[in-house]
Structure formats: C-alpha cells, structure tokens
Design a binder for these strands. Structure first.
Length: 423
RNA sequence: GGAGAGAUGGCAGAGUGGUCGAAUGCGGCGGUCUUGAAAACCGUUGGCCUGCGAGGGCCCGGGGGUUCGAAUCCCUCUCUCUCCGCCA
C-alpha cells in the first residue's frame, strides 16, 4: 500500500508510473487527494472541539473541588453543543478514513524505472542466462513418466488421499525432496540467512500484512472453523514476524530463510500446463526474506538474484533470468526477476523462483519501520524470493539428467542425497 | 472439552472516575568519575495525526456504552495464562 502522503505529494508521477502496470490511476488519485483534504480539515476542527471539551471538563473538576456546584452545572450545559459537534465531526472523519483506506488498498505498487513496458509474459526481457540445454534422445520421457518408471512420485495415490495436485513422493523421490530442502537451507545459512521454522497456518491479520488478503482471498485454503489460512508461501509468516515492529537502523538488513510446505488453491487453472509437477496444490519451497534500509534495497535485490543464480548453477540446470514487464508484475512488487529452468523433455521453461523488491509497499501494510540515529521512524523496504521452489526443479532434474542407466544426481546434491543415481 | 485468572510503555509492575501518557524498578541512550571497564551518581528514554512553529488532538488488547470527564464503571469480541481432562 502506498502512503497517502506520497500520493498527494506526487500525484502526476504516481499516475504516470502506474500506466506501466496498465492501471489508470487518475480518478482514484484525485479521490484520494480530496478525501485526504477532507480528513485533515475535519481532524483539525475536531481537535479544536475536543480541546475545548477538555478545558471545560478540567474546569468542572476544579469547580467541584471548590464546592461551586452551581457554576459547574452551568459549565456542563455548554458541553451539550460541543458534544454533538464532536460526534458529527468524528463520523465524517471515520467515514473519510475508511474510504481512503479502501482506495489505498486498490492502488498497486509503483514499478521501478527499469521495469520494461509490456502487457504479458511475452514482453518480459531476458536479463541473462546460463547452463547448457541437454540434447535428449527422441525417446526421452517427461518427468511424470520418469516418476512412474522409477517409482518416485505417485500422483494417483495423492488423488485418492486428497485430490489432484497433492502428489505422494516415495523412496528416492521422497529422499530427493528432503535432500533438496537441506541443500537449499544449508546454502542459505552459509549466505548469512537466519533459518526460521514458521507456522504453516496464519491468522487473517498476517494475510493482510503481506497482501494475500483481501486481494487474493480465493487463493488460500481457509480453515473457517478457526478462521486460519494455510500459507501459500513461507513469506507470509516470516515477513509477519516484523508486523508492527520498529527496528533499530543498525539491525538492518534482516535476513531470514525458511522451508515450508506451501498450499495454493490455484482456483481456475487447469489444462496441460498443470501436468505432473508443473502446478500443485501443495509443494515445498525454501524462501529467503530480507528487510532492508530504503537506500540499500536495490543492492540487496541484486545480491538475492545473484544468490539464487548460484543455486541453479550448482544444480547444473540451464537457467535464465527474466526482468518482468509492467503487465506481468504482481500488484505488490516494484521490481521482479523470475528464474526459469529449462525442462528438456517438456521442451519448456519453468518458473522456479521469483525475486522481488516491494520497497515500502508491504512495509506500510505491515507497519514495519526502523528508527535511525535521528530518532525518526521510517518504513523499511522488504524483499523476498524463492530459493528455491522444489517441484519444477525436480521436474527439470529428472528430465534433463535421464540416461540409459538412470537419472544422474548433480554433484553438488550428492552429499545431501547420499546416492548418485536413481535407477 | 471443563473451571478460574488476566490483558497497562522495550520488559517487569503500580494505578483512588478528575493536572494519568500514566508511579516505581530493570533495560536502553547521554554524561560525571576512571588509564580503561565495572560500580556509583546525574540526566534522558513510546507511537500516531495535524501544524512552518508554538501548540493541539488521539492511543492503557479491539469495538461499543455511561459521564461534563474513563486506564479506572457497564456491555461485547479477541487473545493469553493457570488447574483438570485428553494427547504428539
């Protein structure tokens, strides 16, 4: 959420920059400005009335102490009008504030100047790429066939127990999952991230804090009996650690990492691109989160992107980094880099990570601030990224590394799997 | 699930319906002293809105009410803790 102050002071800039996200903000910005004006003037009037009330109340107290009961009663009469007036004004104020808040929630984050123009995924620009795309034999199998051939993942069993999108990992399939989680976590720890084990269900306040609510209400599983939500990513609980927190400037940056299972309803997405591991209702992911000083958040974004790059390189997967265009970016992001790996048998790129700088957009909702030496409090910047999401990594590993003998485990992962080949 | 207690500043913990935004202690910060440190002593120490500023207003879990006036009284919601039961 943008701050009212920023919008009112930079109205034309806000409108111009949001055009890149294909969001016409002209109307909403002018409404924000007029509501904010109303809010300020009403607040001032109300404060005056309240100040007078306070003065009278105090005087009445004194009069009673002096035993001047009649004068006190006279003073009481004066408050009747003031009371009505204050009620009236605070009603106006409440409604203005509420409307203002509703509008603010509808305004997306401003895209960074470096965000390319564009409508959708085709307009994202390739930042850089690496690794080599393997040339597979004609009879190469997609990962869902390989998973069956080597008895690694049972999709039908998941349907029986839960439903589509809840695979059951078995044997070396399960061990591979565990190895990847450990691989990602231990890399993150070495890179200076503090490992966190967060709750997998969160309350509504946390959902609002990171922006899943109210925007993406239908995307989370909701345990209505307790009004708790299953997390779609560890970002939600880990970032909400800092909700309503004022950090000391010297504590920045905060670097946290967490593994979690992630739950997504993925309502409305069906078709061939959801085959196998490509899109699931439950999957595993290691997330990295940073909270940083506003002046340093873009350096940090680069650092995080570089870090994720080391992971795909160690896994020896062909990768590329996309700079998302205005039309493909999320509501909350200012700049996002997506990582894709090439899954050779499906012959397509799969998104395995998304690294974003939210600037102060998320922090404003969270009320996550820092206090500097000047004792002023200001909003932090928040960033996060997947490092990494497992299923599509597994898909690419299985497909790209298939040989006559079996599936070859990348060297960097062997210490974690304890085996070199799936056969 | 049953019974009870409670929610106050970074933490602990007072608080009579009226100079309470709130005692006191600890912690934090600054200083004196010291070669340095500790101790001791002195000072300081929340957030939000508004205003150039002086200042004004709001905040004692959330919401509502009573009252000229509420941290204090009433209603309601949420949460936490203790004991019992069940249980990884």
């Amino acid at each position: 959420m943008l701050t009212t102050k920023f919008i009112t002071e930079n109205a034309t800039e806000v409108i111009a920059r949001l055009a890149k996200k294909h969001f016409d903000a002209s109307l909403i910005v002018s409404e924000v400005i007029s509501l904010d004006t109303l809010r300020k003037t009403t607040q001032t009037k109300l404060d005056e009335v309240l100040a007078e009330m306070n003065a009278i109340s105090k005087a009445i107290g004194d009069l009673y102490k002096q035993g001047k009961k009649q004068e006190a009663d006279e003073a009481k009469e004066k408050t009747v009008v003031l009371k009505e007036k204050s009620k009236e004004l605070s009603d106006i104020l409440d409604s203005a504030e509420q409307k203002l808040h509703t509008l603010l929630l509808q305004i997306p984050n401003l895209p960074h100047a470096s965000v390319p123009e564009g409508k959708g995924a085709d307009d994202n620009t390739i930042e850089r790429s690496g690794g080599t795309i393997p040339s597979l034999p004609a009879n190469a199998l997609p990962h869902w066939e390989l998973a069956k051939k080597y008895d690694l993942i049972d999709f039908e069993l998941g349907v029986k127990i839960s439903g589509a999108g809840f695979p059951v990992y078995k044997g070396k399939g399960a061990q591979l999952q565990r190895a990847l989680i450990n691989f990602f976590l231990s890399n993150a720890s070495q890179a200076g991230y503090l490992e966190i084990q967060p709750p997998y269900v969160v309350n509504a306040a946390s959902g609002y804090g990171t922006g899943q609510l109210p925007d993406k209400d239908g995307q989370m599983y909701h345990a209505t009996i307790d009004d708790l939500y299953l997390i779609p990513t560890a970002e939600v609980p880990v970032t909400n650690i800092y909700r309503d927190v004022i950090l000391q400037e010297k504590e920045l940056p905060i670097k946290n990492t967490a593994y979690s299972a992630c739950f997504r309803r993925e309502a409305g997405s069906y078709g061939k691109d959801v085959r196998g591991l490509n899109r699931l209702h439950q999957f595993d992911k290691v997330e990295i989160v940073q909270i940083q000083h506003p002046d340093k958040s873009y350096e940090t974004l680069d650092e995080m992107v570089n870090y994720v790059q080391t992971l795909v390189e160690k896994l020896e997967l062909p990768w590329r980094i996309l700079r998302l265009c205005g039309g493909d970016m999320s509501f909350t992001s200012a700049l996002t880099f997506d990582f894709e790996v090439f899954s050779a048998a499906q012959n397509r790129w799969l998104e395995v990570s998304s690294v974003s700088n939210f600037e102060s957009f998320q922090a404003n909702r969270l009320k996550c601030r820092y206090k500097g030496d000047d004792k002023k409090t200001s909003l932090c910047h928040t960033l996060n990224g997947s490092a990494l999401a497992l299923p599509r990594i597994v898909a690419a590993l299985l497909e790209n590394n298939q040989t006559e003998e079996g599936i070859v485990i990348p060297k960097a992962l062997v210490p974690f799997t304890g085996f070199t080949l799936i056969s």
